[in-house]
């Protein structure tokens, strides 16, 4: 008999701790786990290492964590929608690592899929290659070779991007059944589906929690096997 993973917000927060690395999928403020982030605020959890695409907008979603200085470091592709994040980065209050959006998703996919890294053309000859290993296809030899940034390019060149992994991931679902099978809605799916694969502990907040068996197996986008807990999302956002 499948067991229910539905818990209260407060109980879910007992699995979160200061200094943890947490994946917060979402795009600007769409598909962001508003309720679970509110839970982090209420539980006073701080010194977070965040992996996300953006930092929502000022005062909403991840923006609440920014405003209340709960974040130590962010790995993301863009902060332009939240002027408060920009100001805190400039002031040195938050450390930031930019990763191109597609590379960010691939790094997390690699982390979730047991892959040691990925080769991407994105960012070659840009500041994104600084400190990273570069490989170039050597057609004559039929294999890759490592190259230095200032070597002339003679073949397809790629950055070796390493995997990303987290302690916890918060997922925002449109529907979830009680064992954590998830259906996303429209562009709120964004990073949720990939990020859900790459954390030790996955907590889903769902707008609608349904009985086990109510979801068609073919419509499930994230298998419940990846999910540890399910929390009812507050609907005001």
């Amino acid at each position: 008999m499948a067991k229910s993973k539905v818990v209260s917000l407060a109980e879910a927060m007992t699995h979160c701790h200061d200094g943890m690395t947490i994946m917060l999928p979402g795009f600007v403020n769409c598909g962001v786990s508003q309720t679970l982030i509110e839970g982090l605020m209420e539980a006073g959890i701080k010194d977070l290492n965040i992996i996300s695409n953006n930092t929502s907008v000022k005062g909403k979603g991840i923006g609440k964590l920014v405003h209340d200085d709960r974040i130590k470091h962010i790995t993301c592709s863009h902060i332009g929608n939240n002027e408060e994040t920009c100001a805190k980065v400039v002031a040195g209050e938050i450390n930031i690592t930019f990763v191109p959006q597609g590379s960010l998703c691939e790094k997390v996919r690699a982390g979730g899929a047991g892959i040691g890294g990925i080769l991407t053309p994105t960012g070659v000859h840009t500041p994104m290659q600084d400190g990273k290993q570069l490989l170039e296809w050597d057609a004559a030899a039929g294999k890759y070779k490592f190259v230095e940034p200032d070597e002339p390019q003679n073949g397809a060149r790629y950055i070796l991007e390493t995997p990303l992994h987290a302690d916890v991931c918060f997922v925002h679902a449109y529907k979830a059944d009680k064992m954590g099978n998830v259906v996303y809605h429209r562009t709120a799916r964004n990073f949720n589906q990939t990020f859900a694969t790459a954390a030790d502990f996955v907590i889903v907040e769902a707008e609608h929690i349904v009985e086990i068996g109510e979801l068609d197996p073919d419509e499930i986008m994230t298998p419940g096997a990846l999910v540890d807990l399910v929390v009812q999302a507050r609907m005001e956002d």
């Binding site: 902060i79 332009g80 980065v89 191109p100 959006q101 597609g102 960012g123």
Partner: peptide, 10 residues
Amino acid sequence: AAAGMGGAMD
């Protein structure tokens, strides 16, 4: 200060 590249590089 840079706001980030988002998806432009990809």
